[in-house]
Computed example of a mutant assay.
Amino acid sequence: MKLFLDCEFNGFGGELISLALVDEQGQFFYEVLPCATPKDWVSQHVLPKLNKAPIAKQDFQKKLGQFLNQYTHLHIIADWPEDLSLFSRALILSAGKCMVTPPLIMELWLQQDQVAIFSETPHYALSDAQALAKAYLSNQAEN
């Protein structure tokens, strides 16, 4: 199953704030983690759009695992490398312990012609993941 990924994070290289995955049928995962000391830009442009209360990391990982394990295989697609990095880190439960998932591949989808992906609500991970899904699937239908 193709899952389209978007994350919001606390500035360049910062910790994960929210993560969204949208499948090809529109089913989605969206959760928010606490951000104790947000950067000014994040406070102004990301936090007001979260639309959900933060949950503990352990609860986040439990819900993510439940969502991922409903599929038989996973093809995670993102349009930014840091999203793949943050997703990968979310799979790490503790030292030497990783979440068990179905077979998983990741794809970084960077469009050669830099066609813009239009999100209805930019910097809201769920809206951005939905926009990525629409753009990717539209592109695949054209080719």
Results as ranks from 00 to 15, higher is better:
M1G: 09
M1E: 11
K2V: 06
K2G: 03
K2Q: 13
K2A: 06
F4W: 04
L5R: 01
L5E: 00
D6S: 15
C7M: 06
N10T: 05
F12T: 14
G14W: 05
G14C: 06
S18M: 04
L19A: 04
D23V: 04
Q27I: 08
Q27N: 14
F29G: 03
Y30V: 11
E31D: 15
E31R: 15
V32F: 02
V32S: 05
L33Y: 01
L33N: 00
L33T: 01
C35Q: 03
C35D: 04
A36T: 15
T37G: 10
P38G: 03
W41C: 06
W41A: 11
W41Y: 14
H45W: 11
V46Q: 06
V46R: 03
P48N: 07
K49N: 14
K49A: 10
A56R: 15
A56K: 15
K57I: 15
K57G: 07
Q58P: 14
D59W: 02
F60N: 01
F60M: 03
Q61I: 02
K62S: 12
K63I: 09
K63C: 12
L64K: 06
G65V: 03
Q66T: 12
H75D: 13
I76V: 14
I76E: 00
I77C: 02
A78N: 03
W80F: 14
P81A: 00
F87A: 00
F87C: 03
S88H: 12
R89N: 15
A90V: 05
I92E: 11
L93R: 07
S94T: 14
S94H: 11
A95L: 09
G96D: 02
C98T: 12
M99R: 05
V100S: 11
P102K: 04
P103T: 06
P103A: 05
L104D: 01
I105V: 12
M106L: 10
M106I: 09
M106V: 11
E107D: 15
L108H: 13
L110G: 09
Q111F: 08
Q111G: 08
Q114H: 11
V115T: 15
V115W: 07
S119K: 03
E120M: 10
A129N: 11
A129T: 08
A131E: 01
L132F: 05
A133F: 04
K134V: 12
K134I: 11
A135I: 07
S138N: 14
N139G: 10
Q140T: 10
Q140R: 13
